[in-house]
């Protein structure tokens, strides 16, 4: 639609040819993806809330989880988010070496988180937990736990791959600051989702 067809106070912003959000199309697409993915997780967590309330009783978290270990996982993910933010800042300042160092640290944080999640899962599986049953008495506990933390873990794995590709592109001189920023948005989103999972599964 051309500018001439739109009248009123919004015309300069919505008439086409300008960006109402003052960001590039690829960053806008990333935000739209993040909104969609956030709503997907919100649906899963609302379903978890429903099942937990409908079950009446729920396994005692202190019997199931080692909270100090989960705190370490949380520390790792929060720290990787800070290193990612530093990498984004460095890319905008043109500090190429710093970008690579902090992208590397973020990747290490992601891999450490995945290793810890694998360790946590294997411990629960060895104790008899599965999608259909578990030794703590409420069958739906295993289904919701493995599905939601597994879905989040898959996001972390994808994030590590995106970061590795971004770092490789920066290493060879093909990377742009905007690419690091987009990878950073995704990575912080993964951290953001963990804040909700950590609270609703491990603390409440």
């Amino acid at each position: 639609m051309s500018q001439a067809h739109i009248v009123g106070p919004m015309a300069p912003a919505w008439g086409g040819g300008v960006s109402p959000f003052r960001i590039g199309w690829n960053k806008l697409m990333m935000w739209i993806f993040i909104i969609g993915d956030a709503l997907l997780f919100a649906g899963f967590l609302a379903g978890y809330g429903f099942l937990r309330l409908a079950s009446g009783s729920w396994p005692d978290r202190s019997q199931v989880f080692e909270l100090s270990f989960i705190a370490l996982m949380t520390f790792t993910l929060i720290t990787s988010s800070a290193t990612m933010a530093t990498a984004v800042g460095a890319s905008q300042r043109g500090e190429r070496k710093l970008v690579l160092v902090f992208l590397g640290l973020t990747i290490l944080g992601g891999l450490a988180f995945l290793a810890m999640q694998a360790y946590e899962w294997s411990g629960l599986i060895r104790a008899g937990a599965s999608l259909a049953s578990n030794p703590w008495g409420v069958p739906l506990f295993g289904a919701t736990f493995f599905m939601i933390t597994g879905f989040h873990g898959t996001h972390v794995l994808v994030g590590v791959l995106i970061l590795a590709i971004t770092a490789a592109r920066f290493q060879t001189g093909r990377g742009r600051p905007e690419g690091v920023e987009l990878a950073g948005l995704y990575w912080h989103f993964v951290d953001l989702v963990w804040v909700f999972i950590f609270t609703l599964f491990y603390l409440v």
Binding site: I23, I35, L39, A42, G43, L45, A46, G49, F50, L53
Partner: peptide, 28 residues
Amino acid sequence: ETRALMLIVTLTIIGVSAALFFGIAPDG
């Protein structure tokens, strides 16, 4: 970011999440 982007992101996520939680979870 611009106020438009900030509001679209936060209101969509918070609004729909609240509707899901308060609409579905209490049914449990």
